[in-house]
Amino acid sequence: MNIDTIQAKLRDFAQERDWEQFHSPKNIAMALNVEAGELLEHFQWLTQQASFDLEPDKKEAVAQEIADVQVYLCRLADLLKIDIEGAVERKMALNEAKYPADMVRGKAKKYTEYR
């Protein structure tokens, strides 16, 4: 399913329930943050290695939270008429410029610390 299809389905879902009245960019951004927190909760207190080795039921719960985050991101972009693919391409180009591979390989500093 591509982003346009997801957004159309989400639009229909909201319309069928008369929820568009609640779907302001502000409210969707807030809901997105709540869902991101729920995703984070699954990893709280895990070691680095344990975060890779999730039990199947935990992995499915994480998948559901990832889906919730994606749903709200798609809905927010749709409401604001933001082309997600274009925004991602532009951001990746900016990140490539801020983090040249030959300069940052194997390091985890913020780009401002390399200049």
Rank of each mutant, 00 (worst) to 15 (best):
L54D: 08
D78H: 15
T47P: 00
R75P: 00
R90G: 01
L79F: 01
A77N: 08
L73Y: 01
C74T: 03
V62A: 07
L73P: 00
W45E: 13
E65C: 05
Q49I: 06
E60H: 09
V71A: 14
Q70M: 11
E41N: 13
D83Q: 09
G86T: 13
K58T: 15
Q44P: 00
A61W: 01
K81G: 07
Q64K: 12
V88H: 04
D78S: 15
V71S: 04
E85V: 14
A87F: 12
A50F: 01
V69S: 02
A93G: 01
K81S: 14
E65Q: 12
I84M: 12
A93V: 02
E41T: 08
D68S: 02
Q48W: 11
R90D: 12
V71T: 12
L79Y: 00
A67L: 12
Q64D: 15
A67T: 13
R90M: 06
S51V: 04
E60K: 13
P56L: 05
F52N: 06
Q44L: 13
K58R: 12
Q48N: 05
E89V: 11
Q48G: 03
W45Q: 10
H42Q: 11
D78I: 03
E89R: 09
D83K: 03
K91A: 09
Q44S: 11
D68E: 03
E55W: 05
D53M: 12
A61K: 15
K59I: 08
D68V: 02
K58L: 14
Y72C: 04
E65L: 07
L54R: 02
H42L: 09
Q44D: 10
L76W: 05
R90N: 08
L79G: 02
Q49N: 02
E41Q: 11
L46A: 07
H42I: 01
F52M: 10
Q64M: 10
K58A: 14
L54M: 09
A61N: 14
I84R: 04
P56H: 04
V71F: 11
E85M: 11
G86E: 11
A50G: 03
S51R: 11
L73W: 00
T47G: 04
V62L: 07
E85L: 15
V62F: 07
E55M: 12
L73C: 07
R75N: 04
E60V: 09
Y72L: 14
F43I: 06
D68T: 04
K81C: 11
C74F: 05
D78Q: 14
K91N: 08
A87S: 15
G86Y: 06
L46E: 09
E60M: 12
K59P: 02
A63R: 15
Q64V: 13
E89N: 08
Y72Q: 06
L76C: 01
L79I: 10
V71N: 13
E65W: 05
